[in-house]
Design a protein around this nucleic acid. Structure first.
Length: 419
RNA sequence: GGAGAGAUGCCCGAGUUGGUCGAAGGGGACGGUCUCGAAAAUCGUUGUGGGCUUUGCUCACCGAGGGUUCGAAUCCCUCUCUCUCCGCCA
């Protein structure tokens, strides 16, 4: 949610924002503005009536305690109450519509975000390492894994369905090693606290981070219990402080958590159907930060660097891409994608996405902090990024470290985790 | 899953014959006095969100949502969560 002052004071600015984001039809801003004004008028009127009712009711109490007759007053207040009720009903429906529209307004974009319509306009900001050379034609991880007997897609499909898979032996051990390596790196060297929390969350949490109410079909929900399987540990981590006020001295808070992630991949039919690229369940190490507003864009650079460090230590060639205005997700103000080179697939593959949400998510989830004692609480800024997607990292290691005979060399950084 | 108890401000905790209760009291935190300084003592301040004609006025919030009433933290209904006992269990 953006600061409501934008709706009140700068509707033209918001129109421009929608245009930049290539989503002009997503929100009826004129309607939003009109509702905002109408509800404020009604609110004023209704507050006046309530004030009167409170005052008269007090008088009734006083009269009665003196043994005086208050019937006349009581009749008057009864009428007031009727009127107030009508106003509340009108207001409630207006508030509802206002909130729905407010939630649909995307986040303000940072000035450094390039204008553009889709991924073609994203800007490569840096590249690390080089594409490895092979004296043979490197295989994509799915062929390599199946040939080697460590990836089993047929069994995954039998057990659960399309887009499920099974790791056997080395693949399973390698992914576990990758996860441990990443968690150790982030906790020992980057200052994150390791968290282990729920993989299933309630609707408040899904709403807090923005999954609900809009993109309901993209997630698995267990109706009977009102719980949803998390699509990322971002949900668990960000909701740690939902509805709370933190002390300024405790910021920044840095947390990391490894989790399984569940995605329905609705609308991705026929896309990336092979391999570990797009599946319904995968593991990921997530990074989340809660920071003071004035530091959040610096923190985004550091967070992205924390994720990049994983690839550096694994000696995997990658590039960092700054998403353009049309490709940046609605809740993000600025996003970097990290794309790792996949020699077998002969393409770069997104392995991490790091975003600064500024106060957009914090406002929604009511996460605030107190600048100093006695001051009003303010919304803090939240950031998150994958550090990294474990399944895709496994695939990248397999493709980059394969030998002609179909073996996989263990990267130096992972050796101690596989002994 | 069965039986019972409870949910109040940063924390503890009063308030349940409905009225001047946004809420006593204690603790904590912050500020002042005292002191060379500190402790102790003492005085004061200390919830959140909204509206407006914004050094002020006002509305809402006592787990959440409904209801009764002129008026509800206080009465009624539903839900959620917590605790205790029993059952089950990695």
């Amino acid at each position: 949610m953006i600061d409501p002052k934008f709706i009140k004071e700068d509707i033209e600015g918001l129109k421009l924002l929608l245009k930049k984001r290539n989503m002009e039809t997503a929100v009826d801003l004129d309607r939003l503005k009109a509702i905002d004004e109408e509800r404020r008028t009604l609110l004023q009127k209704s507050d006046e009536l309530r004030e009167k009712r409170n005052r008269l009711s007090k008088e009734i109490g006083q009269s009665k305690s003196k043994g005086l007759d208050a019937n006349e007053l009581m009749k008057q207040v009864q009428g007031l109450s009727e009127e107030i009720k009508q106003y509340s009903e009108k207001l409630a429906s207006l508030e509802q519509e206002y909130t729905d529209l407010h939630l649909s307004v995307p986040n303000i974009l940072h000035e450094s975000v390039p204008e553009g319509t889709d991924e073609k306009d994203n800007r490569i900001v840096r590249t690390w390492g080089e594409k490895p050379h092979f004296s043979f034609k490197p295989k994509p991880h799915y062929d390599l894994g199946v040939d080697r007997g460590i990836l089993d897609f047929e069994r995954g499909v039998k057990i659960a369905g399309a887009r499920f898979y099974l790791y056997r032996g080395l693949a399973a051990r390698l992914e576990r090693a990758i996860i441990n390596f990443m968690l150790d790196l982030h906790t020992r060297e980057h200052g994150y606290t390791e968290i282990f929390g729920p993989f299933m969350v309630n609707d408040e949490s899904m709403t807090g981070t923005g999954q609900y109410p809009k993109f309901r079909d993209e997630y698995y929900r267990i109706e009977r219990d009102g719980l949803s399987l998390i699509p990322t540990a971002e949900v668990t981590l960000t909701n740690i402080y939902r509805d709370e006020i933190l002390e300024s001295s405790s910021l920044p808070v840095r947390v990391t958590m490894q989790s399984a992630c569940f995605r329905r991949e609705a609308g991705a039919a026929g896309k990336d159907t092979r391999g570990l690229v797009r599946v319904h369940q995968f593991q990921k190490v997530e990074l989340v930060k809660f920071v003071r507003p004035e530091t959040s864009f610096d923190e985004l650079e550091k967070l992205t660097g924390d994720a990049e460090e994983v690839l550096k230590r694994l000696n995997l060639h990658y590039r960092v891409v700054l998403l353009c205005s049309g490709d940046t997700s609605a809740s993000s103000s600025k996003t970097y994608d990290i794309e790792v080179w996949m020699p077998g697939m002969d393409r770069y593959l997104e392995i991490s996405s790091c975003s600064n949400f500024m106060d957009y998510q914090a406002r929604r989830a009511k996460i605030r902090y107190r600048k100093e004692q006695g001051r009003k609480p303010e919304y803090l800024h939240t950031l998150n990024g994958s550090g990294l997607a474990a399944g895709r990292t496994l695939a990248a290691v397999m493709e980059n470290y394969q030998t002609e005979k179909g073996d996989i060399i263990i990267p130096e950084a992972l050796k101690r985790y596989l002994e």
